[in-house]
């Protein structure tokens, strides 16, 4: 994660996010709600969020090596950042994505 912290981002950066869900099971619903809320409040128009249902599109899961759901992948970093789970702790999620809190 240190590596990702080093990547320089300015205001023009777009956060490319993919959220892999499994239908609308509980964890998937929670994650979706959590990331959508987080994007709107913290990233405003600086993000692109794609929600992929693996039950409908297994090939995308295969391509991104997604074995568990929900999985959130930030593809705009190199290497991509992957967070698994229902994303119930938004502070941790922000930290993992390298997004600083409101104060910045």
């Amino acid at each position: 994660m240190d590596k990702k912290d080093n990547i320089k981002r300015d205001g023009t950066d777009i956060y490319q996010l993919k959220l892999f869900v499994a239908g609308d099971d509980r964890n998937s619903r929670l994650a979706r709600k959590s990331i959508e809320q987080l994007c709107e409040t913290k990233l405003q128009d600086k993000y692109h969020l794609e929600i992929i249902d693996v039950l409908q599109d297994f090939k995308s899961a295969l391509k991104h090596n997604v074995l568990v759901a929900p999985t959130l992948i930030l593809t705009s970093t190199q290497p991509p950042t992957t967070i698994i789970g229902s994303l119930n702790d938004s502070g941790e999620v922000l930290k993992a994505l390298g997004i600083k809190e409101e104060t910045s």
């Binding site: 994660m1 892999f20 499994a22 239908g23 099971d25 964890n27 929670l30 994650a31 693996v54 039950l55 297994f58 090939k59 899961a61 295969l62 090596n65 997604v66 074995l67 568990v68 759901a69 929900p70 999985t71 950042t81 992957t82 967070i83 698994i84 789970g85 229902s86 994303l87 119930n88 702790d89 941790e92 999620v93 993992a96």
Partner: peptide, 21 residues
Amino acid sequence: LDADTINGDFSLKPLLAIISG
């Protein structure tokens, strides 16, 4: 499974979806 962070619960359904698909 190269998760950088585990945050909350998750299931193996994508794995099953890949296998089934």
